[in-house]
């Protein structure tokens, strides 16, 4: 791991809602998507171990978007996305992004951990009101980059940790990869998407951006009995590569 140039979140235009907390925890960041993303906290190897056991990462800086309303899924299919018929399932796209179908006409799109932003930028650029009369209904863009904070929770203990904050059974044999739970977490609404990294259970957690500091603290507290702590994006990327 090469030393990263010191990047300060507050020098960027776009800031994670919890940048003060990751910075205080010693995050080393990289600029992605015009925001600072914590890549590691000083020791990537121990973070890899931690990610296998119990960890949380702040991915709020990574690209995401969403579309909703009549015509959404047809339009996205026309844009080359593969979206299955079931709601509350997430569908992997070429390039790694995940299209989470929250409802028959609602898609929350999160980038893969390589975070190229390619698909998301293209879709954001492609959507417009158009000039046809009557207008073809293609859904409406949603400000998903900003409405939700995005954390990833990984490790074998993750289901037990979730059981401390969430009433939905997220254990691996009850909550298959790709499944989505839109539910209450630590008394606030959130979206959980199972997206394992290699053989390690992993979950995206998307929740109200304005409560991000609260939720980060609540999750850290819940995972402390399992030795959980923050890890950077690098550990998550390695988790996907290295057979564990």
């Amino acid at each position: 791991m090469g030393a990263l140039p010191k990047v300060f979140a507050q020098n960027q235009l776009r800031r994670s809602p919890i940048y003060r907390l990751t910075q205080a925890a010693g995050a080393f960041c990289e600029v992605i998507n015009s925001g600072a993303v914590p890549m590691h906290y000083g020791n990537s190897d121990s973070e890899l171990d931690r990610a296998r056991r119990m960890a949380i990462a702040d991915l709020s800086g990574l690209p995401r978007t969403g579309f909703k309303g009549t015509g959404t899924v047809d339009w996205l299919a026309g844009q080359g996305l593969t979206i299955g018929p079931d709601s509350n399932m997430a569908y992997r796209q070429d390039g790694g992004a995940l299209a989470a179908r929250l409802a028959p006409t609602e898609i929350f799109l999160i980038d893969g951990l390589e975070a190229t932003g390619a698909l998301i930028d293209r879709l954001n650029g492609a959507w417009n009101w158009g000039t046809e009369k009557p207008r073809k209904l293609i859904g409406y863009p949603m400000p998903r980059q900003d409405s939700h904070a995005w954390f990833m929770i990984t490790g074998d203990a993750a289901p037990d940790m979730f059981a401390k904050i969430c009433g939905v059974d997220l254990r691996p044999h009850k909550f298959a990869p790709g499944r989505i739970a839109q539910t209450s977490l630590a008394k606030m609404s959130g979206i959980v998407i199972r997206d394992d990294r290699g053989a390690i259970p992993a979950f995206h957690l998307l929740a109200d951006v304005a409560s991000a500091e609260y939720l980060w603290g609540a999750v850290l507290d819940a995972m402390s009995e399992f030795g959980g702590a923050p890890v950077g994006l690098q550990a998550l990327r390695r988790l996907g590569e290295v057979p564990s």
């Binding site: 800031r15 630590a186 008394k187 109200d208 304005a210 409560s211 500091e213 609260y214 507290d221």
Partner: peptide
């Protein structure tokens, strides 16, 4: 329990 008392903070 561990009282969950969500709060919202502006940017």
């Amino acid at each position: 329990g561990r009282i969950f008392d969500p709060e919202r903070r502006t940017a």
